[in-house]
Design a protein around this nucleic acid. Structure first.
Length: 498
RNA sequence: GGGCCGUUAGCUCAGUUGGCAGAGCACCUGACUUUUAAUCAGGGUGUCACAGGUUCGAGACCUGUACGGCCUACCA
């Protein structure tokens, strides 16, 4: 703690002491502002248009710039709606205000009141009559022109990133609105928003390494959920015809520009629907989000312009893999022959991988990077989709699709398997597979199977990675740019700072 | 986990062949009554990420460590 105080600019502490000595509380409890900076600017325009006589306002915000001109000074303050220029005439200020004014710094939070006017150059300005310090800043802000660009610092001290970089503020504003529109979209269609456990005795619904934790009173180990799926399907059994959850998922796996250990997933389930209906839901929802949040269905991503307007292209997975890699997985019904064929493609083929994961490898290596315009890949091998219902005419394939755009996966959906006996067989087969690979085998979620045995209506289910969707809509190439506090390794040095 | 690259003032960045640690912004002092990246005059505020090593001398060269970035690997 002491070392941190040592680093605080000495002058600012002196100013703080002076302010306190003059009887001013540098950290008061509240301030009544009559207008945001945006509202104040609008009010001035209304007055100029003769729509109002009002000109007295009080505004509050952080000092972002100071331009002293001798007897007058221009300062900019910013709040979350924008900024406004303040004009201080030193001659007009009270003695107390003048003393305080001299000890102000860029970064301080202040409240001011006075009359609105426009300068010669047309800048909306508040002629300050009264000044209140709301919070003294003891740390210098990042540079005004270049902003903050040190990536490490931008993520660890996100508040500085938000203060310094308008683009960062915009990304998180968009993210918030995307989630708002998703809720609107689903609520309007009769979906019920629910919350299901994050702490689970079994981590099911996906195959990923979970985080583990322990509950002391129960003296029981728990997993942090890796998917929401199995609980939402229990609710479908329970009679809710349309449910969704927007929630945090945790996967104890690698960190990359497309993976964060905790991320946000939307899962929604609708009864009496199959994956064709879900496709309509996805393309409708994503295009509406884009239209409502960005005002357009066309988004720039990398060097491409993506057109999110429905209908999106539909392409059978088998045909897509043939198109981009030349391999027809239907011709290689077993692991050995498929691996053989893939070796001819000059890519590394992990001998541990089963057929499903080999196909997954083909998708991520050859197909995914090539799918720029929004596209549904349809009909996945049953090997890699244990929770999806088989196609009526081909039990090696399931009614499943993944949606891709800009080279990244944004949604995964299927006609849900609701035959409890087949579901049990799929789980058992999966267990056998994992066992053969010498991996840790999770026990089967018997409670979920029991729920299915009571009868689950035909259901279409969907999962959407919200972080990746926001990447797409904001043109960001790294998931850390759309997560406020992405996971970083803790620094050993500098820990004393906090 | 592996490979490559990076880390210099509060921020953004220079730093030549190994020879006194630099600039802009911020900050401090002074001038200035309509500026807006205000301007003008003056002031450098530093554990060169950390720890060793080579050398008369290291920000630079070597080794290791930490953190980050990119690629790769892992990834229902």
């Amino acid at each position: 703690m002491a070392s941190r105080l040592d680093r605080i600019a000495e002058q600012r502490r002196e100013k703080l002491d002076r302010i306190r000595a003059s009887g001013i509380n540098p950290y008061p409890h509240k301030y009544h502002r009559s207008h945001t900076t945006q509202q104040a600017t609008d009010l001035l325009k209304q007055k100029e248009d003769g729509l109002t006589q009002e000109e007295e306002v009080s505004v509050a915000g952080r000092i972002m710039a100071n331009r002293p001109m001798g007897k007058i000074s221009f300062l900019d303050i910013r709040d979350s709606t924008g900024k406004i220029q303040l004009c201080f005439h030193k001659e007009y200020l009270s003695e107390e205000n003048l003393g305080l004014f001299k000890d102000l710094d860029i970064g301080d939070i202040i409240g001011t009141s006075g009359k609105l006017f426009r300068t010669k150059s047309g800048e909306p300005t508040l002629e300050v009559e009264d000044l209140t310090l709301l919070a003294k800043s003891l740390q210098p802000l990042p540079e005004k022109w270049h902003g903050l660009s040190d990536i490490d610092k931008r993520y660890r001290q996100r508040y500085l990133d938000l203060i310094a970089n308008a683009e960062a503020r915009e990304i998180f504003r968009v993210r918030s609105q995307v989630i708002t529109v998703i809720r609107q979209f689903l609520n309007q269609r009769g979906f019920l928003e629910v919350e299901t456990p994050v702490l689970q005795p079994l981590a099911g619904g996906a195959l990923a390494r979970p985080f583990t934790t322990h509950h002391h009173t129960l003296d029981q180990d728990f997993y942090l959920r890796i998917a929401i799926e199995l609980h939402l399907k229990r609710l479908i059994v329970g009679g809710f015809d349309r449910v969704y959850e927007l929630g945090r998922i945790f996967r104890n796996e690698g960190i990359s520009t497309k993976h964060n250990p905790e991320f946000t997933m939307l899962e929604c389930y609708q009864t009496y629907a199959d994956y064709n209906d879900v496709m309509s839901t996805v393309e409708g929802m994503v295009s509406q989000i884009s239209q409502q949040v960005l005002g357009t269905a066309k988004v720039e991503f990398g060097d491409d312009t993506l057109n999110l307007k429905p209908p999106w292209q539909r392409l059978e997975l088998r045909q897509a893999i043939i198109k981009y890699s030349g391999i027809d997985f239907e011709e290689y019904p077993d692991v050995g022959s498929l691996r053989e064929a893939m070796l001819g493609l000059n890519i590394e083929v992990d001998p541990q991988k089963d057929r499903g994961r080999l196909i997954d490898e083909l998708i991520s290596t050859f197909v995914e990077p090539n799918i720029i315009q929004p596209t549904f890949l349809l009909d996945y091998p049953v090997d890699m989709s244990p929770l999806a219902k088989a196609k009526p005419d081909n039990n090696r394939l399931v009614e499943r699709f993944e949606a891709f755009a800009g080279g990244i996966e944004i949604a995964n959906a299927f006609s849900e398997l609701n035959d409890p006996i087949e579901q049990r067989q799929r789980f058992l087969q999966q267990q056998k597979q994992r066992q053969a690979e010498g991996e840790i085998v999770e026990s089967i979620d018997e409670d979920f199977l029991l729920a299915l045995e009571y009868g689950m209506p035909p259901t279409g289910g969907l999962g959407v990675g919200i972080d990746r969707l926001v990447m797409l809509l904001t043109g960001q190439q790294s998931i850390r740019e759309v997560i406020l506090f992405p996971q970083l390794r803790e620094k050993n040095e500098g820990k004393h700072e906090s």
